[in-house]
């Protein structure tokens, strides 16, 4: 039996004792190297589920294992340093240059200076930005799409095995977004990492995911390959999601 990258066992999250389950008894397992997209409307629990993996939130019940290890037993700071984390607002530090931003975690880990420099150049090339041109700029001098590329590079800095991406392209215009999606797929293919990508955009979810997890009211409605979901929607929520997407398609065809 191969080791699972991520496993959820009966994981629940309530924000208050009496409150509803934001994440409701979720069981799932994810293999190393998969690109999982988590699709759901706002309030479905998708972001909460993601943030429990790097212990920004603690589950109310249940356990989460990363490569067979229960993360509740590991220091949260150590868990997080093994996981890349990208958020919609990017959160680049405005008082640091691009190079310093990317070098944040390597510096925390006290990498030698030449190794950090080399890694920064390598990462900038990886995300398609010329190191010479961008290294010494400040985040405010970059476009939204460029900033998110830096966000990606920063998250990849110490080569984490798992990447968590919380609607990373949510605030980016449609054309740049398509470019970034393609590059993210290219990156995933070349890196052999496990990606978890939260989105509320159905096209994005089905385009990027090797498997798509559809969440509704804190529960996983369906977790399968895009093809299987399209062929056999598991419940009425998934069917209605498919229908809405098809309707949109027809709308575009009608305009043609």
């Amino acid at each position: 039996m191969s080791l699972k990258a991520i496993e959820f066992n009966q994981v629940c999250k309530q924000y208050s004792q009496s409150g509803d389950f934001v994440v409701d008894h979720v069981n799932l397992s994810i293999n190393e190297g998969e690109f999982i997209t988590i699709l759901g409307s706002s309030g479905s629990g998708k972001t909460t589920l993601l943030k429990m993996i790097n212990r920004l939130y603690e589950p109310s019940e249940g356990t989460i294992n990363l490569f067979g290890e229960d993360i509740a037993t590991i220091d949260p700071v150590k868990v997080r340093r093994k996981i890349g984390y990208v958020i919609q607002q990017v959160g680049l530090f405005p008082h640091m240059t691009i190079a310093q931003n990317i070098a944040t975690v390597p510096k925390l880990l006290k990498w030698p200076q030449p190794k950090i420099k080399e890694r920064v150049d390598e990462l900038l090339n990886l995300v398609g930005l010329d190191p010479k041109e961008f290294k010494n700029r400040y985040p405010s001098q970059l476009s939204g799409g460029q900033q998110q590329r830096i966000g990606l590079a920063r998250a990849l800095a110490i080569d984490p095995k798992i990447m968590l991406l919380d609607e990373p392209f949510g605030a980016i215009d449609a054309i740049t977004r398509l470019h970034l999606q393609d590059e993210l797929m290219r990156l995933h293919g070349g890196l052999k990492k496990t990606f978890l990508f939260v989105t509320h955009d159905i096209n994005e979810a089905f385009k990027l995911g090797t498997r798509v997890m559809i969440m509704n009211n804190g529960k996983v409605s369906q977790f399968d390959t895009p093809q299987s979901i399209v062929k056999n929607p598991a419940d009425s929520f998934v069917s209605s999601l498919m229908r809405s997407s098809r309707e949109q398609e027809r709308f575009w065809e009608g305009l043609d």
Partner: peptide, 25 residues
């Protein structure tokens, strides 16, 4: 808060967050 979230998610400790992010900002 997005900077705090990014920094925490990257694995900064409370003190690192304080001195490397909160103070300079």
């Amino acid at each position: 808060p997005s900077m705090i979230e990014a920094a925490t998610g990257m694995g900064m400790s409370r003190m690192q967050l304080l001195f490397q992010v909160r103070v300079p900002l």
